[in-house]
Nucleic acid binder design. Structure first.
Lengths: 164, 164
DNA sequence: CAAAGAATGTCTGTGCGGCAGATTATTTGT
DNA sequence: ACAAATAATCTGCCGCACAGACATTCTTTG
């Protein structure tokens, strides 16, 4: 019998940035889902609650832009979080149209638990990385995310596809 | 009037790993969508075609596990790619149940174009990173993705949530 | 060797979620 | 003062994902 591993072809998973990002993101999402438990909209609700717990609350439009969601989606997202008693819609003193999404005391308490749970989940996900590497990953992702923010505003993702 | 930027609170986007990963992933996805054009299922179809273009074809179940999709989703994904003449279902000689998904010559040609388009899109996304940093990002993500593969198999994402 | 169990691919139905569009109220620009 | 833009909401429709059942084939076990 000849060697069955003699071929120089790749047998494992792909290594593109596209697969790596998607897989890392899915893994993180999976870990996050386990950590947030029965929070109304899972990881999405966590992101909203996290922003609502900030000292300077934002309105739904800003929140939607930040989380990459549609405006209409924010309505029932905040609806459900509000029904759970975690956030509240407080009128913006500077603009009577907009409503600021602010965490209630119960929401802040829940956020405290969530911070620990998600931190533990992330630590488990990054267990193979040293603290310095974790910090480095943050820095690299931050620069990509900063550039990515421009993608949403200008949808010109055109690439030259005239040659092959 | 007092300074409106004197407060020590964060005013920009959040910096958690969760937001960074999601935003970087969304930015990449947006760039990818622009690059793949009218490919049947967008970035998802690209992932499937990319694997189909490998020298060692996989069956739908393996493909689904690799892309993080449900088995039933693979059916119409491959259906549409097959209808577009990009891939074909070839019977597995070792297992008459499974069908290997292999790229057609037209699919390989399309993949050649896609590789250039997506590479250009990724280069634009990573424009702020040096080649060494890009390589480093790949390495870090690879280690996270490798650990993430275990998440799918064992769904035990339990974290201690007894304290606060 | 026979039978039970597991795996692959496919189909059907159901439900949830997202997106477009219209609506109301309010702000901003000219 | 009027027009245009913006924030939030509601309605309705489309699409996709997931559960379940089914036919076929492989594997394990008695």
């Amino acid at each position: 019998m000849a060697e069955d591993t003699a071929a120089p072809v790749r047998t494992g998973p792909p290594q593109d940035l596209s697969w790596l990002l998607a897989t890392a993101f899915r893994a993180h999402l999976s870990a996050l889902r386990g950590a947030v438990g029965d929070l109304p909209h899972g990881a999405r609700g966590y992101g909203a609650l996290r922003e609502a717990a900030e000292p300077t609350p934002r309105n739904q439009a800003e929140l939607a832009k930040l989380l990459g969601l549609d405006r209409t989606v924010m309505v029932y997202l905040v609806d459900d979080l509000e029904a759970a008693g975690l956030v509240e819609r407080v009128p913006d003193p500077n603009d009577r149209r907009s409503k600021l999404i602010r965490a209630t005391p119960a929401g802040l308490a829940r956020m405290c638990e969530l911070r620990q749970a998600t931190a533990a989940a992330e630590a488990e996900l990054l267990a193979d990385l040293s603290p310095a590497e974790t910090e480095l990953l943050h820095t690299l992702l931050r620069r990509i995310a900063a550039r990515g923010a421009r993608y949403d505003q200008a949808h010109e993702c055109q690439v030259d596809e005239n040659q092959c």
